[in-house]
């Protein structure tokens, strides 16, 4: 729980990726993933990630979605949702988030000025339960070392 579930894997992938980046020019493009294809099955007892998503663990991916209103104005952490998040009159905790969110960890602390906007996020895909040590926010899928741009 305290250990990052995919750290070792991620490091290995990263070194391979870094090596490739040194020799290959231009750098290999990120794989595109979408909210519609994250899951193989989706039920009340939980869901299973699609085989392709599991296979892409630790690799560079890009995903289009909406930046949810951030917990803090300036952060490395925000939530990406399938649809713009608006109808949540009593949203007070992560209990109120949609289930199919993707948590984004940015490379650097950034003013999150694009809340509500449609954005493309690129970064390293992480899959598996993870509790953010600062906020206690639990996520199942993340994009780490990420950057984003508005669509």
């Amino acid at each position: 729980m305290t250990d990052h579930p995919h750290l070792s894997l991620t490091r290995r992938r990263f070194s391979i990726g870094a090596a490739l980046a040194l020799f290959a020019s231009p750098a290999r493009a990120a794989e595109w993933i979408s909210f519609d294809t994250l899951y193989k099955s989706f039920g009340v007892r939980g869901f299973e990630f699609a085989d392709r998503i599991v296979a892409l663990k630790g690799q560079e991916v890009s995903l289009t979605g909406y930046m949810a209103p951030p917990l803090r104005a300036e952060s490395t952490f925000f939530v990406l949702t399938r649809e713009p998040l608006a109808i949540c009159p009593f949203c007070q905790s992560d209990a109120d988030w949609p289930v199919d969110i993707v948590v984004i960890y940015l490379k650097a602390e950034t003013p999150l000025v694009s809340a509500g906007a449609k954005i493309i996020v690129s970064g390293r895909l992480e899959v598996g339960s993870w509790t953010d040590p600062d906020s206690g926010f639990v996520s199942q899928i993340r994009i780490a070392d990420a950057s984003y741009r508005r669509v």
Partner: peptide, 22 residues
């Protein structure tokens, strides 16, 4: 509202502990 019944390690859970209430 099933996600709050599922143990944290189950994909789709919204719990913060490993209790599986189902």
């Amino acid at each position: 509202g099933s996600p709050n019944f599922l143990a944290k390690s189950t994909p789709g859970s919204k719990r913060t502990d490993e209790d599986d209430y189902i």
